[in-house]
Amino acid sequence: MDKEEKIPLKKILLICSKASIEDVYAALVMGNGAVMEGIETKLFFTFFGLDAITKKTMNKLHTATTGNPGMRMPGGLPFPTMLGGLPGVEAGVSAMMRKQMDALDIPPVDEFLELITAGGGEIYACKLAMDMFKLTKEDLHEEVSDVITVGDLYEMCDGLGTQIVFT
């Protein structure tokens, strides 16, 4: 039997369409991890994911305290949904989560983007979503290289050993 040839991952495109801390960081950690391995990396932010590259919102991301079955109280007890809906609770929980991440040396979003581009990774915004949310390039962080269409994105997918991941 012929030995199967393994093709290593050479290029990865990560698409982030949500604004919650966990969704954005999943894309950032995977993207940065790929850059660290010397893999060509492109991150594409669309829909609510644009919050992660918009200067005003990027460092104030929230996690959902309602409708999130994984949410726990400190100590591990279940987090009552009614409590999660009270004003200020989501902001408080999110701030606490960001603080805990910082303690683990996980950078804030803006610094994470800089780390990714320092290693040669590229950050893109979705044109259609930008139009929808009435955002301009000036609203976005400096590390965003361009606002592109879906067609542009697919053109970047050429080459053997390329993968697209939608987070």
């Binding site: 940065n32 660290m36 391995e37 010397g38 040396d105 950078p107 610094e111 800089e114 780390l115 320092a118 290693g119 040669g120």
Partner: peptide, 25 residues
């Protein structure tokens, strides 16, 4: 971490990637 090395005062993250290209860590 690359972040830690970038803040070491020895090199920044970009210079670190340039010195050890590919998988620097």
């Amino acid at each position: 971490t690359i972040r830690g090395i970038g803040k070491s005062g020895v090199v920044n993250a970009k210079e670190f990637y340039a010195l050890f290209p590919g998988a620097p860590l």
